[in-house]
Structure formats: structure tokens, C-alpha cells
């Protein structure tokens, strides 16, 4: 960083969080991690399965439509 003003700001001391508060934050976050919602991941897993199936079905449907159209026009 060559800008003297930004270098000056970068040289400012970092703030120190009170250790008891830091521990409290960490503890609360660990608890929240342990109890975080699982529903979205279940739906995400379901989406992983259903998305290719839906794409396959759509492909088959479009192929059938195209085939009928070609038949209708006698091609």
C-alpha cells in the first residue's frame, strides 16, 4: 500500500474484544451451529435427486411432441 493516508489508517491499533465477551460469542455460535436448521439441506438433497429426473422427463416430453409434429406434417 503506497498511499500514505491509507498506510496511516492501516497502522492504527486493532481493537481488543473483552475475553469474556469473546468466549460468550463463541459459545453462543457453537450452540447455534448445533441447533441450526436441517430442513434446507433435506430439501437441497431432494432437489439434487428431482432436478435430473425432471430434466429427463421434460426431454422425453419434448421428443414426443417433436415426433408427433413431424408425423403430422408427414415428414
Amino acid at each position: 500500500m503506497t498511499d500514505p493516508l491509507l498506510r496511516l489508517l492501516r497502522g492504527l491499533p486493532q481493537a481488543t474484544l473483552d475475553p469474556s465477551r469473546a468466549d460468550r460469542i463463541r459459545t453462543r455460535c457453537h450452540a447455534a451451529l448445533a441447533h441450526r436448521p436441517r430442513r434446507d439441506s433435506i430439501w437441497a438433497d431432494a432437489a439434487d435427486i428431482w432436478a435430473p429426473l425432471a430434466a429427463g422427463a421434460a426431454g422425453i416430453y419434448l421428443t414426443a411432441v417433436l415426433r408427433q409434429a413431424l408425423t403430422a406434417y408427414g415428414l
Partner: peptide, 9 residues
């Protein structure tokens, strides 16, 4: 930090 852990998934 709580927002992070609530949104990790």
C-alpha cells in the same frame, strides 16, 4: 457471528 452460523447451510 450469529448471522453467519444461522446461514451456514
Amino acid at each position: 457471528w450469529l448471522r453467519l452460523v444461522k446461514h451456514t447451510h
